[in-house]
């Protein structure tokens, strides 16, 4: 086994769960999360030589995962836009229609409905607000860590988090009514 292969296996053992859970938080569907996890590690294998030491490996992996989730959602949006689905159900919110059926194995059955409602509201947030909020609540990252992952200043992250909370509150209220 080559040195690169060994390095890749170590990284996989260490970060597979992290990538899978971030993808699950983003997509709320285990099949989609599995697909994105595969894409992330295939991409990571191809770019391992290009990894710059100026960011930590964990930050780099978070960044690739978030970007891959966004690409996955965009690809699905493109497919739906040209598909028959939205043509028939034009009353359905396009962003909401992109997400597959809710299938998050980490959600307890008794909380499923309430959690699904929150995720539905989070999915309607602009992508940067959603990323910042999920990294904060689900991954427990600090503002500085989020800033590093998203390549923004900590001030910008603070503003994103504040706006995401306000918008989420509004969306939850609207979805209830």
């Amino acid at each position: 086994m080559s040195e690169l292969q060994q390095q890749f296996n170590t990284i996989y053992q260490q970060y597979a769960d992290l990538v899978f859970n971030v993808s699950l938080g983003y997509l709320q569907n285990s099949a989609d999360a599995e697909e994105v996890t595969q894409d992330v590690f295939v991409k990571l294998h191809g770019q391992l030589d290009n990894f710059k030491e100026d960011s930590t490996l964990k930050t780099w992996i978070y960044r690739i995962t978030v970007n891959q989730c966004l690409d996955f959602i965009k690809a699905k949006k493109r497919k739906k836009r040209f598909g028959f689905h939205l043509f028939i159900r034009s009353d359905v919110n396009e962003d909401a229609a992109v997400f597959s059926s809710f299938d998050h194995p980490g959600v307890q059955l008794e909380n499923k409905e309430a959690t699904q409602r929150i995720y539905a509201a989070i999915n309607q947030l602009p992508e940067r607000q959603k990323t910042a909020l999920l990294l904060k609540t689900m991954e427990g990252l600090s503002q500085n860590q989020i800033a590093e992952v998203m390549e923004l200043s900590p001030k910008a992250v603070e503003s994103l988090l504040s706006r995401s909370r306000t918008n989420l509150k509004e969306l939850l209220k609207n979805n209830e009514g």
Binding site: A16, S30, V107, A114, T115
Partner: peptide, 10 residues
């Protein structure tokens, strides 16, 4: 409630 979501093994 989101924080109660359990982490899952890949």
């Amino acid at each position: 409630l989101l924080k109660q979501v359990k982490r899952v093994d890949a």
